[in-house]
Amino acid sequence: MKKTLITGLLGATLALVAACGPLQEGNRAVSLLSGVFGSLSGADDSPSEGGVAMTRAVIEAQEADLLRVSIISRDATAILLKVATNGSKVTWASQDGLSLAFDRGLLVASRGFGDDLMGTDISSAVASLRGGGNHLRTLDFLNGLDEIERRTFQCSTVVTGSESLTIVERTYQTTVLEETCTDSNFGFKNTYWRDRDGTIWQSRQWISVQTGYLGYQRL
């Protein structure tokens, strides 16, 4: 469906006469404007927790595993459900169309956040969590030109302490590790709260330049 730019945009502003009929259901001109305003306000993709108070009983009652996630730069929080497992990778999704995939607790992909992480090799990063070390990490991003941009970071992981971590009525003894990564013009720092079995119960990890950091807790 091709329209002239003018017809499309100004047609949408004609609030006097509304578009109707099944052929007009996907009238992009209307959603174009709402989309522009929506994305400016950031309201489009703010996950919400739904207002239910989180208790251990509520968590136990769920069939699927839960992950509490926040996007720190957007000041937004959501509960994600475990929706798929592929080898060591687990995909968690929200009802409003966001998903995150983790491999042994490390973020490998995001979808629906705008600036998304398309994939990454985390095997050496996982190894470094057993007490620290240096490693390389390559992250794949999808840019505005629909091309994959591969960025390689030089990283080092150090143990910064141990912490007794409480998540919804349960307490875990964790080691806190920090992974610091830099490339020629950018750097980020991930933090992991890891128990003795290797489970990461809480973490703060970088997604991408525009989306910023992710925080999560296993529930």
Partner: peptide, 14 residues
Amino acid sequence: TVSGLDQAPIPVAV
């Protein structure tokens, strides 16, 4: 919106 705000895809079922 860089990669776009498309909803997350259905994950692969292995």
